[in-house]
Design a protein around this nucleic acid. Structure first.
Length: 589
RNA sequence: GCGUCCGUAGCUCAGCUGGAUAGAGCGCCGGACUUCGAAUCCGUAGGUCGCAGGUUCGAAUCCUGCCGGACGUACCA
């Protein structure tokens, strides 16, 4: 599609030039690239549209006239005439390209390239590290983490598809005051209970004590001080605290890993704050020595940010214990030396924008030139229809519960539609549908926007949803199975794109052609929603197409075979696109 | 106060490198299963694109101001 566009820009450019020469005026444009290509409002009007308004001043005539002149010139150009037909529509020149000329080529390209169709090289050679998820070890994952994981994994796969070398990293938040809170509550109220003894999933078990701390601290003013004391003990390596910490962290991490497994999330490398905080502390101390930071009377160490019009930021507490910022400094530096990246992207909620602004700036001040290559991919909050999620009011949507609930809904649906026998593995299929629904729901919204998670809607499998896409994939798969079963019927029949004459077929071809561009655009914008929109469009177009036009059952065998080829190509693009946005592909559902 | 982001149909969202009547889904109403799986398809109704200026031949899209909302501005993460 890009090449076609380029050549048409050239044609229009040339036509304008000659028209201008004839009139003895300047064309008012100096390069073909600056000619804007758009699409006509309706597909039957053509494939590309060129507005003539911008040239009116230079050519000293109305855009309508210019459109007429351009069309006349185009008609005199052999290469242009061969490539398509053109017409004026008021001030526009509409071009209808002979797209079906390339239909056979694109179909066989898709079918030959298979999983590689859509892979590009725009980011070839780039080493990109992508951080996402970053759970705390004091509670299980919730809906907010699911959005993070969904965006992170999708962006990772998309960047890879654009040619980058991608390293997915996680950072386990396993130290800090919040961790001490749940440890403290457990030591105080746990009575030696364990996940095994209570039959709870281990991360939920730990989360219970984090909540417990909250209620306890309301009754007891000393609770917070005790937690702070525990943090000091932990940082100084107190044995009892350390062993409790190890135990509880293991519980949480084990539980979270189960959730990752269920939702298909994985990492190439996992960092732990507990391993990086001390190097961060060292960096701060070095910075102090170099005069980059300053010390307050109470011993705390600060960065002055007035040069970027911000206040000041504490980097190390007076008692010597570290903060989130301290460890993030250490982590970033460790990463650059572990795997020298060209870019490091942090997928973290928008509420931490200030944090990253400060972090990046401090790294620059410390003299790390690669700090320029850091990016905060910020995403909005997930709210509920009746407001914010609040842990205290118990309105937090738990990740495990949600996935389970979606799976149950899908299972009911399979049973209600009497698809069980066909599907075979009902639970597995239901789970795949649940993930398809979830990932699509979370990714169809641009990351920068806050979104409202409507449980009822997310559970719907109709309309603009993941399962709708999966359904289209399953339908085509089913058709292909039937086709393979009666292959002898079509023996010796060759597909021919010349019989693909229906409007939807042309639309499908155009979509197939544009898929690689969509992947590239999605990669450039770090925005998977462009891809969900594309796949939905493809599914809708195919759906309309096969509803009205017999494919396999066509009495004309050449048409049947040709449409099968087209369908296979569409299916391939579904598979490739689904993969990128985390929608499991299903042969049957 | 300052900073960042957001404001498009009843609801949830696309569109925002400026271009021809602003698009989907859900919901509403009405159609289509002897036909490749109806988790489908088709149609109707529904919008001063927060408001006001500006730039432009042309603005939902760019700029400015205002209004409304979210988040941040912690020795939390």
């Amino acid at each position: 599609m890009t090449d076609l566009k380029k050549s048409w820009q050239e044609y229009i450019f040339k036509a304008l030039k000659t028209a201008a020469d004839r009139e003895n005026v300047e064309a008012g444009i100096d390069s073909a690239e600056n000619i804007i290509v758009s699409s006509p409002p309706k597909p039957e009007m053509g494939d590309f549209a060129f507005a003539m308004f911008p040239f009116a001043k230079a050519l000293r005539t109305s855009p309508q006239n210019i459109a007429g002149m351009v069309v006349k010139e185009l008609e005199n150009m052999e290469d242009a005439s061969a490539a398509g037909t053109f017409s004026t529509a008021g001030p526009y020149v509409n071009v209808k390209i002979n797209i079906m000329d390339s239909a056979a080529g694109i179909i066989s390209k898709v079918l030959n390239d298979k999983d590689d169709y859509g892979r590009g090289s725009s980011l070839k050679g780039r080493k990109i590290m992508l951080e996402f998820s970053c759970p705390n070890t004091n509670k299980p994952l919730h809906l907010g983490h699911l959005r993070n994981d969904s965006i992170g994994s999708a962006v990772a796969r998309i960047l890879k598809a654009a040619g980058a070398e991608v390293m997915k990293v996680n950072l386990i938040n396993d130290r800090g005051i919040h961790i001490c809170k749940s440890m403290l509550a457990y030591r105080k109220f746990g009575n030696g209970a364990t996940p095994e003894s209570t039959g709870m999933k281990s991360d939920h078990f730990v989360g219970k004590y984090y909540v417990k701390f909250d209620s306890w601290s309301k009754e007891d003013d000393g609770a917070l001080a005790e937690a702070q004391k525990m943090l000091q003990d932990w940082e100084s390596g107190d044995e009892e605290v350390t062993s409790l910490w190890k135990q509880m962290n293991k519980w949480t991490i084990d539980g979270i890993e189960e959730t990752y497994k269920a939702t298909g999330i994985s990492f190439d490398k996992v960092y732990y704050e507990s391993n990086t905080y001390s190097s961060g502390k060292q960096e701060v101390l070095n910075g102090l020595e170099k005069g980059v930071f300053y010390k307050e009377d109470d011993g705390s160490i600060w960065a002055d940010l007035s040069e970027i019009k911000l206040d000041k930021k504490v980097l190390l507490r007076g008692d010597g214990t570290t903060l989130y910022m301290t460890q993030d400094l250490g982590t970033a530096i460790a990463r650059q030396s572990d795997w020298p990246f060209d870019q490091l992207i942090y997928v973290v909620g928008s509420e931490q924008q200030y944090h990253f602004q400060v972090l990046f700036h401090i790294l620059k001040k410390l003299g790390y030139i690669w700090a320029e290559d850091l990016k905060h991919l910020s995403y909005g909050m997930v709210n509920l229809p009746d407001g914010k999620m609040k842990s205290r009011e118990g309105t937090v949507v738990d990740a495990d519960d949600l996935v389970k609930q979606l799976g149950e809904m899908a299972k009911e649906e399979i049973i209600a539609k009497e698809r069980g026998d066909d599907v075979g593995d009902i639970d597995g299929t239901a789970h795949s549908i649940a993930l398809g629904a979830l990932n699509y729901y979370l990714l169809q919204v641009s990351p920068s926007k806050d979104m409202i998670f409507n449980p009822a809607e997310s559970l719907s499998f109709n309309g603009n949803t993941g399962p709708y896409l999966q359904y289209m994939g399953a339908r085509i798969s089913s058709m292909i199975r039937k086709f393979e079963n009666q292959k002898e019927k079509f023996a010796g029949i060759e597909a021919s794109s010349s019989v693909l004459t229906v409007e939807e077929e042309k639309e499908l071809i155009k979509l197939l052609i544009s898929y690689p561009e969509v992947v590239e655009q999605t990669a450039n914008q770090y925005n998977p929603s462009a891809l969900t929109a594309f796949l939905y469009e493809l599914a809708k177009t195919y759906s309309r197409f096969y509803h009205d036009n017999p494919v396999l059952n066509n009495e004309d065998k050449v048409i049947a075979v040709s449409r099968m080829e087209l369908s296979k190509a569409v299916l391939q693009v579904f598979r490739n696109g689904f993969e990128l946005i985390g929608i499991p592909f299903l042969e049957k559902m």
